[in-house]
C-alpha cells in the first residue's frame, strides 16, 4: 500500500483492504458505515487527497446499492475506494459537499441516476437529466430500449 495512504490512515480507525495497484489501479478499499463517513472524508481532506469520483453500483440481487467514493493524491497515485452500502428501497448516502465542494455535482449526478438521497446535500436539482425525468436509468431494472 502507498505510504501516503498508510500515513493518512495510521491514526484513524479505518481498516483498509489492500488491493493490487498494478492489476486493478486501486491501492485499497475501505468499507465504511454512514456515521463514520464525515470523519473519513475530513481525514482525506486534511491529508491533501482530492476527490476523483463519486458513483454507485446497483446490487440488485442483494437488494442493496453501494456508494463508491474514490480519492486520489496529487503526490500519488494513491487511490482509495471508500464504499458504503445502503438499502435499495430507500437509498440514503451521506453528502460530503460541505467538505469537498466539488462533490456536489458528483452527488447530483449519482442521485438522479440511481434515485439516491444524499443526506445534507445543499443542491438536489437534476444535473444531466431533464428536470421532470422521474426514472433512475442506472438501476438494473431500468431496461435500455
Amino acid at each position: 500500500m502507498h505510504e501516503i495512504i498508510e500515513k493518512a490512515l495510521k491514526e484513524s480507525r479505518f481498516k483498509p483492504v489492500e488491493s493490487d495497484h498494478q492489476a486493478t489501479g486501486l491501492h485499497c478499499h475501505i468499507h465504511i458505515e454512514p456515521v463514520d463517513m464525515e470523519g473519513f472524508v475530513f481525514c482525506m481532506r486534511d491529508h491533501g487527497f482530492f476527490l476523483e469520483l463519486i458513483t454507485a453500483i446497483d446490487l440488485i440481487e442483494e437488494n442493496e446499492i453501494e456508494g463508491l467514493y474514490v480519492f486520489n493524491h496529487y503526490q500519488g497515485p494513491a487511490r482509495i475506494a471508500a464504499r458504503i452500502k445502503t438499502a435499495r428501497d430507500n437509498p440514503v448516502l451521506p453528502s460530503i459537499g460541505s467538505i469537498y465542494p466539488g462533490a456536489v455535482w458528483h452527488e447530483r449526478e449519482t442521485a438522479e441516476f440511481f434515485g439516491i438521497t444524499f443526506e445534507g446535500s445543499m443542491d438536489t436539482r437534476h444535473l444531466l437529466l431533464p428536470e421532470d425525468f422521474a426514472f433512475h436509468p442506472l438501476r438494473k431494472n431500468f431496461k435500455a430500449i
Partner: peptide, 8 residues
C-alpha cells in the same frame, strides 16, 4: 481549491 474540486 484544486483538491477540493478534483481539478486535474
Amino acid at each position: 481549491d484544486a483538491a477540493e474540486y478534483g481539478v486535474t
